[in-house]
Amino acid sequence: MDLRDNRRDYVQARLTRDSLLADPMAQFKDWFAAVLEHGGLPDPTAFTLATVDQHHRPHQRIVLLKEMTDSGFIFYTNHASAKGQDIAANPHVAMNFAWLEMERQVRIEGTATKLNAEQAESYFRSRPIGSQLGALASAQSQPIASRTELEAKYLELEQKYQTEPVPKPEHWGGYLITPSRFEFWQGGRYRLHDRFEFKQDANNEWQITRLQP
């Protein structure tokens, strides 16, 4: 399999310094709105979350963005999962949104902190009942002998909670990622991509720098 000629040129748009908003969260929301308006993009809220464990080994996986606030980005998971254990050891994380159909990417670096129990409970109650049961059935990231065992646990819980609320698992909750760096990437012809970095200075003000592709 020869992959050397598997490529395409990027010609949809340009990104200029004058077109950028001064606030990177506002810029992100502007691009995210364009993603939703574009239509047809699968899983527009999906992003790669990168963490580093206590032995300095990096890990990454796809998770779903569930909320944006003025403070940052919120996602939910099991705190006892591999990603939760990594964050407990090292709260510095990185995010990557890849909207390649629009020839755009956004990289974000920041710090993850747990949401309070009330926020986690409120979101858990908003989930479909199947997702609630799935969270309760799975000890995320732990070994299991077979899928049959997992499905049997799910069916057992489904029978048990037919007439009463599904309890939120003790270790299930959310994280707020507070960003300290953004990079907006717009694919360019001849691989001359447009890249702009937003980085906070000593006064927590955002400084914008064009980066070479």
Results as ranks from 00 to 15, higher is better:
Leu3Ser: 06
Asn6Pro: 01
Arg7His: 15
Tyr10Leu: 14
Val11His: 12
Ala13Lys: 15
Ala13Glu: 14
Asp18Thr: 14
Ser19Arg: 13
Leu21Trp: 01
Ala22His: 09
Ala22Glu: 10
Ala22Met: 08
Asp23Arg: 03
Pro24Gln: 06
Gln27Cys: 02
Phe32Asp: 03
Ala34His: 08
Val35Leu: 15
Gly40Lys: 04
Leu41Pro: 07
Thr45Phe: 08
Thr51Asn: 13
Asp53Ile: 14
Arg57Tyr: 15
Pro58Glu: 13
His59Glu: 09
His59Ser: 13
His59Asn: 11
Gln60Ala: 14
Leu64Met: 10
Phe73Trp: 07
Ile74Trp: 05
Phe75Lys: 04
Phe75Trp: 13
Phe75Glu: 02
Tyr76Thr: 05
His79Gly: 15
Ala82Thr: 13
Lys83Gln: 06
Lys83Asn: 04
Gly84Lys: 00
Gln85Pro: 00
Ala88Arg: 08
Ala88Gln: 12
Asn90Phe: 03
His92Thr: 10
Val93His: 00
Ala94Pro: 00
Asn96Tyr: 00
Phe97Thr: 00
Ala98Lys: 01
Leu100Glu: 10
Glu101Gly: 14
Arg104Trp: 06
Gln105Pro: 09
Arg107Glu: 09
Glu109Asn: 09
Gly110Lys: 02
Thr113Pro: 02
Lys114Val: 05
Leu115His: 02
Ala117His: 08
Ala117Cys: 12
Glu118Trp: 12
Gln119Met: 15
Ala120Cys: 12
Tyr123Asp: 11
Phe124Ile: 05
Phe124Trp: 02
Arg125Leu: 12
Ser126Tyr: 03
Ser126Gly: 06
Ser131Tyr: 00
Ala135Glu: 03
Leu136Ala: 04
Ala137Pro: 01
Gln140Ser: 07
Ser141Met: 08
Gln142Cys: 04
Arg147Phe: 01
Glu149Met: 08
Glu151Gly: 01
Ala152Val: 02
Leu155Phe: 09
Pro167Ile: 14
Lys168Pro: 11
Pro169Asp: 14
Glu170Trp: 10
Trp172Cys: 07
Pro179Ile: 06
Ser180Tyr: 12
Glu183Pro: 04
Arg191Met: 05
Gln200Phe: 01
Asn203Glu: 13
Asn204Asp: 10
Asn204Arg: 12
Asn204Leu: 10
Ile208Gly: 01
